[in-house]
Design a protein around this nucleic acid. Structure first.
Lengths: 233, 233
DNA sequence: CGCTGACTTGAATTCGCTCAACGCGTGTGG
DNA sequence: CCACACGCGTTGAGCGAATTCAAGTCAGCG
């Protein structure tokens, strides 16, 4: 028997695969395959048959939907070890696209559903993840429905900093040192329910006020975390 | 052995209890107790220890959170057979309050977590429900982030009509006949991320345009569903 | 009957959007 | 190497939808 991909997987101990026994892992390994995505590449299309689900091994993915007249709303971001797709469902209710180059572990949904049904521990992991994601999504509703542009951007920056810290980039030691945003200004606007111009103006203002630094278009540094947290309130 | 509550429960075949075998049902029955709530009564407080979870047997509940300066955002509504609370979590991430008089089946979270872990079918039901709820919540993000007041209210009315139809009130036969809203104007505003005045103005306008009728403050009828659907686009 | 709370309506204000110009870094081709 | 175009981001001016603030209106109820 050859060694499985899973045994040496980078997210072995963080994704839904964590805590699974050898048998379970072998079954997942049997139905999964890996795939590289380049930045901008789509993995799922909104409304399509829900053919596949996936784990993000590396990179950042966006989940998004749009109004019929084309305005986009980003529903969430998926980082390393996050789960993607809609198990036990007929249709994919949102589009999924890579924001950075990415590396994912893909399962045919039918295969995954079957293995999940047969392995309660796997389903439990998935349930815990889904519950957490629902909590996070609901917190975002407060931002979308009740916050102004300044509060939205402050919250966004703090959340991005936290998430980045949790993923634990080895090459980025300090807490609030400058880091690279995986989103363009337009995409940030689509996360926050704003326009690109409003996002840009808020960035400029925060920089002028010394809260953040913008070394380049794609980079940010949080200079005054406390003050940013006050704005985010 | 006495007959269990569950056997004759109104939501026996719709809630997470559906499809469970006698043993599982007996265990749930053993740890659950029923409770009546009057309109306006709170079941859970945001940030409290997640002590209980529940099934809604009858009535409508609201899930909500607020900004530190007191603006409220309603995160979702729970109808008959919907599940409430945060299993496998330490804190309740939102408040839960009855909008109408209600009847719920309550479990201590610790008891429920244990029974769920021991019964994969129950966990599976809960997973399916949570995934559906996540889909619904994400759809609402598009509304909050990208729609104007008119589109928001149109979508709200259509969703309320649909949900009501699915619950299947025996006393309300026709599709778009007038029905009673379980929310005040302020609460509708809190669902849609608007102010009470804006909601009121949109209601008035839709009535003036003949799209809806407002027989009384708490009642609505959809007169021109197609036109309302066009607005909701 | 008048009180109370919920809702409506009006007027003024403001925040974010739209539209438009401009800046800047990057890559390409002469 | 420079000229230029292109994509992305910034900045400005004006506008408009929704909010804020402030009166009214209405229904229910003691």
């Amino acid at each position: 028997m050859i060694a499985s991909y899973c045994q040496s997987c980078a997210i072995r101990n963080k994704a839904i695969c964590s805590g699974l026994n050898d048998d379970e892992l072998a079954q997942l390994n049997a139905i999964g395959r890996r795939r590289r995505l380049v930045a901008g590449e789509r993995l799922l299309w909104e409304g399509d048959d829900a053919a596949v689900v996936a784990n993000v091994i590396e990179g950042v993915m966006k989940l998004s939907t749009q109004t019929f007249d084309g305005k986009e709303q980003i529903l969430g971001l998926a980082y390393s070890s996050d789960f993607l797709g809609r198990p036990f469902g007929q249709k994919t209710p949102y589009g999924v696209e890579a924001l950075t180059d990415a590396y994912v572990c893909i399962f045919q949904r039918a295969d995954f559903d079957r293995v999940a049904r047969e392995h309660p521990d796997l389903e439990h992991k998935l349930l815990e993840r889904t519950l957490s994601e629902l909590d996070r999504t609901r917190r975002w509703m407060l931002l979308l429905g009740r916050m102004n542009a300044e509060q939205k951007l402050a919250n966004f920056l703090l959340e991005m900093a936290d998430r980045r810290a949790n993923v634990g980039c080895a090459d980025a030691p300090a807490d609030d040192a400058a880091w690279s945003l995986p989103l363009s200004r337009q995409q940030i606007a689509d996360v926050l329910g704003l326009t690109i111009e409003t996002v840009s103006r808020q960035f400029t203002r925060m920089k002028k006020d010394g809260l953040i630094d913008l070394p380049s278009r794609r980079e940010v540094a949080i200079l005054e975390r406390r003050m940013l947290e006050d704005l985010a309130a």
